[in-house]
């Protein structure tokens, strides 16, 4: 459904992505792991054109685009199929939770107001925020804000949702609520997801494929078991040793 080919990206003289390939099928939950600075976030941002890749191609179903030279129309068409959940939530600060969710529906997709509000409420119910329709972001905790962010993405009914380290900015005790919402969406809705995260447990329990990236390339990919329990590459092993406590035993 989504195929990314040979993505390159540098910032000034700093090369971040050195030819990344990626293919995701409908219903996949793909987790990208990797040390910071390995280009995970940049890859996600290139897919959604928040960064302009220096080189690379993407195909979303029947739409094929050059990631470097995409026209405004093509970018707009792809953003209609792809939703994004940000590390720092990035809720519209001047809109209520419900307005945050309906904004993209009413303005971006031209869905009638009543229907958009209904879909918005359903999405907020799904993430457990039925009580917070009219709360402004400033009135919500980090975990609640991120759940609104997820509802905003889910309500768009996209072909795929990109999660950019959705729990990294949260206090530790709030990580659980966000992960369980993501898990529920993956399991119950069968939503296709591409998730950049440091939560190994999420990769283990929810992903059907794990990709390990380092230094701008995909080092290794496979099932969670293959990557997390029986990694082959030296770099993967080193990374996992660093992030997984010694006495942590994996059981899948």
């Amino acid at each position: 459904m989504l195929e990314i080919k040979d993505v390159h990206k540098s910032f000034n003289k700093n090369t971040i992505l050195k030819g990344v390939n990626l293919s995701i099928d409908k219903g996949d939950v793909v987790v990208i792991l990797g040390p910071s600075g390995s280009g995970k976030t940049t890859l996600l941002r290139c897919i959604n054109f928040l960064e302009k890749a220096d080189q690379g191609h993407a195909s979303f179903g029947d739409i094929k685009v050059d990631l470097h030279q995409a026209k405004k129309k093509e970018i707009h068409a792809i953003r209609q199929k792809v939703a994004f959940v940000f590390q720092n939530y990035n809720l519209f600060t001047n809109k209520t939770a419900l307005e945050n969710v309906t904004e993209g529906l009413i303005i971006g997709r031209k869905i009638p107001r009543d229907e958009a509000i209904m879909r918005g409420k359903q999405a907020l119910d799904k993430v457990g925020l039925s009580e917070k329709y009219n709360a402004y972001p400033i009135e919500l905790s980090g975990g609640q804000q991120q759940r609104v962010g997820i509802a905003r993405a889910v309500a768009l009914n996209p072909d795929i949702i990109l999660f950019d380290e959705p729990t990294s900015a949260l206090d530790p005790e709030l990580v659980g609520e966000v992960l369980s919402v993501m898990k529920a969406i993956a399991k119950e809705e069968g939503t296709t997801m591409l998730v950049v995260t440091h939560e190994i447990s999420f990769a283990k329990e929810v992903a059907n494929r794990v990709i390990f990236m380092d230094d701008g390339v995909v080092v290794e990919e496979g099932s969670p078991h293959e990557i997390l329990v029986t990694p082959k590459e030296e770099r993967t092993i080193r990374f996992l040793k660093r992030v997984i406590p010694k006495d942590y035993i994996y059981q899948i």
């Binding site: 928040l50 994004f84 809720l91 600060t93």
Partner: peptide, 16 residues
């Protein structure tokens, strides 16, 4: 600028 990025991500044009 993240506000603008969030708007793009839900399918709004720059003008919108």
């Amino acid at each position: 600028k993240e506000q603008l990025e969030a708007a793009y991500s839900v399918g709004l044009t720059t003008f919108q």
